[in-house]
Write a protein that binds this DNA or RNA. Structure first.
Length: 807
RNA sequence: GGUCGCUUAACUCAGUUGGUAGAGUACUUGCUCGACACGCAAGAAGUCAUUGGUUCGAGUCCAAUAGCGACCACCA
């Protein structure tokens, strides 16, 4: 065996084996129950980041676990065309080559888009494969492939025919940089510092952060309860520069406390839109879809961008005495989630999905078999669905799915196709009668970071219900976002990101996977730093070395079978411990609690198996049997560990132990051995060893021990490193549960130690007595608990007596 | 403004139904005793954010406060 685990060689070998033999290709198998995970398709615009590594590790852990439990496991991979994001990236690329997107015809531009699709789909696949995912590559889907396109068109026509898709003039969010409408979910709100201007509109002062919009003002609103303006209601205000008169109207929309309490109503805010619709006013538009000022009213500002015009108008207002005051003001501004430029609200002709009706069954789904883990996200889910507004699905882009209506050039929101992903990937609609679709759909668990609940999860749920009549999955598992060492989001601008591919390159995929998961709960945002990779690497090294030890020992002979009658204490102890860890790991995996399970497995292997059991094997009286036990525990451990560490477990199982072609399809371990009494007894032996280790140091000249486990004498001497005289001890200085120990030591040192121990016991006795003398406790606590305390007190008093006597 | 989280050892995190606070790292001390220094053994280290309540008993349940964070929302 190699000195250390050669992950590079092992990863290459096993990955090639898995992929070349299509080992994880799922098939319709009536003898097995299916378990399906449709993987969230990553955007083809970026390299995989550590968040992908986390989510795919979780998904792969689930699917490997289910596969070993005997399910026909399908994990279906794919990639998303990410319409806007890709278009922006391609345009940037072209710019670097000196090509301006606007100089290209749509057809020419699409050539570049298509090239990008091909190149980066392959790239993403390669990167995903490095994580060691056990997905079915033969079913890899792309959101622009024929199958998805068919599903998109079918869904569009179905919804259109039902009147659930309509075209209308509505107030929408428009990104002037991306040049397209975006949906509500695509608008982020950021706190930004702005200037709040107070501007004289003739007889009234209005407050606004958008001086450039004054040219569009069609009314001024004041609160009906605002006494300051009561006599002005019904009068006219005057727009500066252009001297157009507009009415002053009393309406609740104006907040008395904000600014001057008077606000302009224009064509360029949602608040205004609601107002002008209510009063049947049509404001004049002065900002174009290109984000530039236009029209007669704006005069010399025509052609300026909004940002330019804001400055210029403010300056002119000041110069001409219309500006009453200006002050800093922080408020939330809607920005495009892609480019983070301020969103312009526009009334424009777009396509929408009517949501109220579709949302209803999605809300009810929580009572009809949909489970969201952790449960706290149910509230977020419901809140959004209960307040949902129609979904703007048209985008003014060149790439993406075309709205399938003759003469319409708009494309569809990229999430329109994502929403169909759980069933379009399985052949819906054309292969809905196929065994594949019938077998694998509905899928089982959807795993994703919580940030994507609105964009995606909710839309998949209502789409599944609407188009297939079934929930697309029964469980949604939401996990956190990976943060850096001090809790910040990992981002390019902060430079605090960790590249999973670099970690894999340096430490291996198992390290990447294990270190992301171990010791965390999925509902929290895990913090990640490279130190965690080092720890995981050390653990794998520990496993590797234990196997090396086994190999050396087994060369001298090993029994094929475990014979329970021939086992020693330690053998039975570790088998019973194994039994417990199998139960616990299984239970935790069922609850998706992989992080805590990983912690327990690590502790089991390192502390119980290596620190204790492995050491006993060295002095075992029946080595051939003990090694059979060793192998049994090791193999079961490998199986339990496989979902998180597929490579090293596969390498040991197949290449070192030569137990088979792959561990991935071996049955998940079940409890077999349970020796409760022997386990308890060996725990006591350990206690004796630990007692001896603790006490052996300071000036101990001789040790005598009296106990009933003569067979373990050699073991205790070996493990404690103490030379022991085994004889009856009349006056013990220390007693454990199963032994009397007499230490011949330096008196002063011993007395000090004993006194410390007595002080500790006294504290505990005090606590016990207090509890037991409290009638509240003895009357109200469960009888068993009271009995426990009584026994504990007796034992403590006995120990104290012995200690005091020895002194 | 609304909603929801989080706060446990120096650090990263566990802590099932309330019953004397746990792990790993780091730290201190000692280690070449059949694999492992990416290691072995021993040790020290915590007012469980604060306050109040419920209870015989609270890290755990309830309320308030503080700090941090996330999401939602048209205060111009």
């Amino acid at each position: 065996m190699d000195k250390n685990f050669d992950f590079k060689r092992a990863e290459a070998e096993h990955n090639a084996k898995w992929i070349d033999n299509a080992m994880f290709r799922a098939v319709v198998n009536p003898d097995k129950k299916p378990y399906t995970i449709i993987m969230p398709p990553p955007n083809i615009t970026a390299r995989l980041h550590v968040g992908h590594a986390l989510t795919y590790t979780i998904q792969d852990a689930i699917i490997r676990f289910k596969r070993m439990q005997g399910f026909e496991a399908l994990m279906l991979p794919g990639a998303d065309h990410a319409a806007i994001a890709t278009e922006v990236k391609v345009a940037e690329e072209l710019k670097k080559q000196g090509i301006d997107k606007r100089d290209l015809s749509p057809e020419e531009f699409m050539v570049h888009i298509n090239k990008w699709y091909v190149h980066y789909t392959a790239e993403i696949k390669t990167q995903m494969k490095r994580l060691g995912l056990s997905c079915d590559w033969s079913r890899f889907g792309f959101t622009m492939d024929d199958q998805t396109t068919l599903a998109v068109n079918t869904v569009f026509h179905n919804l259109y025919a039902k009147g659930l898709i309509y075209q209308g003039e509505r107030m929408i969010n428009y990104c002037t940089t991306c040049g397209t409408a975006v949906s509500d979910a695509e608008v982020e709100h950021e706190a930004r510092s702005q200037t709040l201007f107070t501007i004289r509109f003739g007889n009234i002062d209005i407050a606004t952060v958008r001086p450039e919009a004054i040219f569009s003002a069609a009314a001024v609103a004041v609160n009906p309860r605002d006494k300051r303006y009561a006599k002005l209601v019904g009068k006219m205000a005057t727009i500066p520069f252009i001297n157009i008169e507009i009415p002053i109207i009393a309406d609740e929309t104006a907040e008395m406390k904000f600014g001057t309490g008077a606000v302009q109503m224009t064509a360029h805010s949602t608040q205004s839109h609601e107002f002008t619709t209510k009063y049947n006013i049509t404001p004049v538009k002065v900002i174009g879809m290109d984000g530039k000022m236009f029209g007669e009213r704006v005069g010399e500002f025509a052609g300026m961008t909004v940002a330019e015009a804001r400055k210029a108008v403010a300056k002119k207002l000041k110069d001409e005495g219309f500006l009453v005051s200006e002050k800093k003001h922080t408020s939330n501004v809607g920005v495009c989630y892609r480019c983070h430029v301020e969103i312009e609200p526009f009334v424009s002709l777009q396509w929408f999905v009517k949501m109220k009706e579709l949302a209803k069954p999605a809300i009810e789904a929580l009572n009809n078999g949909l489970m969201i883990v952790p449960k706290k996200f149910e509230k977020v889910y419901l809140h959004w669905l209960n307040n949902i507004r129609d979904w703007c699905i048209s985008r003014q882009l060149l790439s993406g799915h075309k709205i399938p209506i003759d003469g319409v050039d708009d494309k569809l929101d990229t999430w329109f196709s994502s929403a169909l992903w759980p069933f379009s990937t399985l052949g819906w609609p054309d292969k809905t009668d196929s065994p594949d679709f019938k077998y694998f759909y509905p899928t089982d668990t959807l795993v994703t970071a919580y940030e994507i609940i609105f964009f995606w999860v909710i839309r998949m749920v209502f789409s599944g219900i609407e188009h297939t009549g079934q929930l697309p999955f029964h469980t949604v598992l939401m996990h956190g976002l990976v943060r850096d060492k001090i809790g910040r989001k990992m981002s390019k601008s902060l430079g605090n990101g960790i590249d999973p591919l670099e970690v894999i390159e340096e430490y291996g995929a198992d390290v990447m996977r294990f270190s992301l998961i171990v010791g965390t709960k999925l509902d929290r945002d895990p913090r990640y730093s490279i130190e965690k990779a080092v720890l995981a690497r050390n653990f794998i090294n520990k496993i590797w070395n234990a196997v090396k030890f086994f190999n050396v020992m087994a060369a001298d002979g090993i029994d094929d079978e475990i014979n329970p009658k021939a086992l020693c204490h330690a053998d039975k102890w570790i088998l019973t411990k194994l039994n417990a860890i199998i139960k616990s790991t299984t239970k935790k995996h069922e609850k998706f609690d992989f992080g805590v399970a990983a912690n327990e497995l690590q502790s089991f292997f390192w502390n119980d198996f290596c620190d204790w059991y492995l050491e006993t094997v060295k002095v075992s009286g029946n080595k051939r049997q003990s090694l059979a036990v060793f192998r049994h525990v090791l193999v079961n451990f490998l199986k339990l560990m496989n979902p998180l560490m597929p490579y090293v477990t596969e390498e040991i199982y197949c290449n070192v132990l030569k137990m088979g072609e792959t561990i991935a399809f071996e049955a998940w371990p079940v409890s077999e051995f349970n020796f409760a009494r022997e386990k308890r007894e060996f725990d006591s032996v350990i206690e004796v060893v630990e007692t001896l280790r603790t006490n052996k140091s300071d000036d101990v000249t001789a040790v005598a021990v009296d106990w009933a486990f003569a067979a373990e004498n050699g073991l205790v001497e070996k493990l404690s490193g103490v030379k022991i005289e085994w004889r009856p001890v009349a006056e013990p200085t220390i007693t454990t549960k199963i032994s009397k120990i007499h230490l011949v030591v330096d008196e002063d040192a011993r007395c000090a130690k004993v006194e410390k121990q007595i002080a500790h016991i006294d504290m505990e006795i005090e606590r016990c007595r207090k509890m037991l003398s409290n009638p509240g406790f003895t009357n109200k606590a469960p009888r068993q608990k009271v009995k426990e305390e009584e026994d504990k007190l007796l034992e403590l008093e006995r120990q104290r007596e012995i200690l005091a006597g020895g002194k």
